[in-house]
Design a protein around this nucleic acid. Structure first.
Lengths: 250, 250
DNA sequence: CGTCCCCTTGAGCAGAATCAAGCCTAGTGG
DNA sequence: CCACTAGGCTTGATTCTGCTCAAGGGGACG
């Protein structure tokens, strides 16, 4: 079944299209950005549930997500897994596999996805041009800060604040991408996947979501989130969500 | 009271000294590394408990920790705080304040510390030289991966595994720096700080540590950790700790 | 029509938090 | 030199958040 639809489909979003790929159309014109275009190898696609990067793999991979959602996760031998970061259209994926030479984390498509891949074996041939490296560093810093924010929500908050933070920060990111409305967005994650993001069980996630609905703060229906009371949501999510910059696309 | 002593004092460790500062002695000779030396502004020091970077500050700061421990944390209005990363001798501190223009996290000295500071206002003048940016990216990638590992331990494991992972991964990092023995190391954190790392209460941390001692896995005494059964420790810490590279010092 | 998977809901349990008291050490002042 | 204080560690008793187990429901697909 294709899960890909709605928000992640539109061409009228702020996300660079596949034809007008991140590599090709970039607000900041620069000779460096022109060079990097030649390292774009192919457009790819994968289906909902496909593993895109194998945890533990030593093969460098690098691509930008064009459409759809993916998760970056770490799974443990005991069967548990923790989602470390949600990958949205425009995000750079697999950078660690190039800089560390090893995939510490797995990446799996949540919906059907399309992406533009780079020639990861020649990473050093293009990544260290000043303009490129500045952008990569900024991307890394923001991703790292988002992971740390998540750690804060998981470690220092109760389940309700934790979930509220997840929703609020996703909403903010999606708004920046033109993939959310002022009061709601499509959330293609299963309850299980949401639970893996928050370090909770699916059962408990469900209960907390119901509580949030009963308090008229957020309503979830058919994988659509409706934010009924943004003010209250931000207040419950004791971890404030960081603004993500508009120009953070490589 | 000075908390600075023992392991973090020695000059015979693998950590670059203040005279032989990270900027000045680096295994990989490179013209780029020579350039960056001129951006070193001063040696600084701070005392146990001092806040080195204010959460929310917009002033860019950049330095390498020379001796002592510090914590990078996020505190919430409700009084909770989460330690996001432990900063050890040789670590680069404050990079986010340069790349994002804002301190999303606070940094506080755990012990007395000394550091070498850069001219953060001229960050872009030296950070994007190919050799420098490669190293910065690698550092960022490893820090980010360590934070994600922590998130995994906090989110997907119980208290015992969580603490075991903290101890095991710290041991590995310190071994790489020559600041730990094969079977133990000095841990200058208070129980409260350990709790803030793990997202637990001090009371519970204490109970879990006692349990680990009773099982003859690790013993803590006077802020010294003794690893009685490394094998069991790694097993209990279901999240495997990543090796940190030897050359990750800027 | 039946199967499968995921969501939903309830009942009971347990891991971790809270509350509260005693203790030990270091620092302070008489 | 010793009494006093303060802060952090230790421990027990109790509470509660979130987990486990288990059963019922609904949509998609063969």
């Amino acid at each position: 079944m294709s899960v890909m639809q709605g928000a992640t489909r539109g061409v009228d979003s702020k996300i660079p299209g596949c034809r007008n790929c991140p590599l090709h159309n970039n607000a900041v014109a620069s000779p460096d950005l022109a060079i990097i275009e030649s390292f774009k190898v192919a457009h790819g696609r994968a289906w909902s549930g496909d593993v895109i990067i194998d945890q533990g793999s030593r093969r460098p991979r690098l691509f930008t997500l064009f459409s759809g959602w993916a998760i970056k996760y770490k799974s443990l031998e005991c069967g548990e897994r923790q989602v470390v970061h949600l990958l949205l259209p425009g995000d750079l994926v697999g950078l660690e596999t190039c800089t560390m030479g090893m995939a510490e984390f797995g990446v799996q498509a949540v919906t059907d996805v399309t992406f533009c891949s780079f020639d990861a074996d020649r990473f050093s041939d293009f990544a260290f041009a000043p303009d490129i490296s500045r952008r990569i560093m900024k991307l890394q810093a923001y991703e790292s800060a988002m992971i740390a924010e998540r750690l804060t929500a998981v470690g220092a908050c109760d389940a309700k604040s934790n979930l509220a933070h997840l929703i609020a920060s996703l909403h903010l990111r999606l708004l920046g991408l033109g993939l959310a409305q002022e009061r709601g967005f499509r959330l293609p994650l299963s309850i299980q996947q949401i639970a893996d993001c928050c370090g909770l069980t699916p059962v408990h996630v469900h209960r907390v979501l119901r509580a949030l609905r009963e308090e008229n703060i957020v309503a979830i229906d058919c994988r659509k989130i409706e934010i009924l009371d943004p003010e209250a949501l931000r207040h419950i999510a004791r971890v404030a969500s960081m603004e993500t910059p508009q120009d953070a696309i490589l």
